[in-house]
Amino acid sequence: MFEARLVQSSIFKKVLEAIKELLNEATFDCSDSGIQLQAMDSSHVSLVSLNLRSDGFDQYRCDRNLSMGINLASMTKIMKCAGNDDIMTMKAQDNADSVTFMFESPNQEKMSDYEMKLMNLDQEHLGIPETDYSCVIKLPSAEFARICRDLSQFGESVVISCTKEGVKFSAAGDIGSANIKLAQTANVDKEDEAVSIEMQEKVSLTFACRYLNYFTKATPLSPQVCLSMSAEVPLVVEYKIGEIGHIRYYLAPKIEE
C-alpha cells in the first residue's frame, strides 16, 4: 500500500502548476525513497524531472513500487478542491487502478476525498548522466521569469551567454533586439536575491523562449533558480522544492544550420 501525507498541500498544487502546461499526462513513480517523475513534452524538446523525497513528507509509506499514470488536467481539477492550508494525503492500494486524494482542513472540521482513475502510460525513460557543467548560474527565480517574459517579445529564441563577469540573455527579431546582463552580486545581504556564477569555461547557447517560459511556472516553488550549462548539451533549470526535493527541466539547445 502507498500513503503519503503532506501538511502543506500548497506545495503539491505548485508542483502541478509547474508541469501541467508542459505535460498532458505523466507517470508518478512511487517507491520507498519517494515520488519521482520523468517525462518529455510531446515534441521531445524538453524533459521534466521531479523528485520528492519520502523524508520530506510528514508521513510516507510505500510497501511496493507503484507507477501511477496520471492525467494532469484531471489531477488539476482535484487539487483545485484543496484549500491552500489543507493537509493532503495520497493513498493507493498495491496494483491499484485508482488513487485517492484526501484533504483535511487545518482544524479538521472538513474532510474530503477524491478518487481518480489511473492510466496506463507508455513512458520513455532517458538516462541522464551526472554532469560537471561549465557554468552554473544561480539567480532569483522571479528575475529569471521576468527576463524570459521580456525577451519572448523580441524573438522565439534566447541566447544565454555566460562568462566570469556575468550572464547575458539576448533575443532578436522583427522589432529589434534586446540584451539583459546580470553581474554577479558583490555583497549578498539576502541570499535569495543573489546572482552567483561558477564558471569553468565560457558557454553561449541558444534556446526556445517558449519552453523557458513554461519552466518559469515553477517560480512560486523557490526564490532561487539554478541554470547549468555546458557546450552542446541540454540546459538544466532547477528549482528546489523546500526541504522535500526539486524539479529540474532539461532543454535541448538549438543549433545553427
Binding site: 518529455m40 515534441s43 521531445h44 524538446v45 524538453s46 524533459l47 520513455e124 525513460h125 532517458l126 538516462g127 541522464i128 548522466p129 529564441s157 541558444t206 526556445a208 548539451v233 541540454p234 532539461y250 535541448a252 539547445p253 538549438k254 543549433i255 545553427e256 544550420e257
Partner: peptide
C-alpha cells in the same frame, strides 16, 4: 537558420 534539437539526441533510453 536555427534548428531545434530533441532530447533523444543527447540522452539514451534507460
Amino acid at each position: 537558420v536555427e534548428e531545434q534539437n530533441e532530447m533523444n539526441s543527447f540522452y539514451q533510453k534507460s
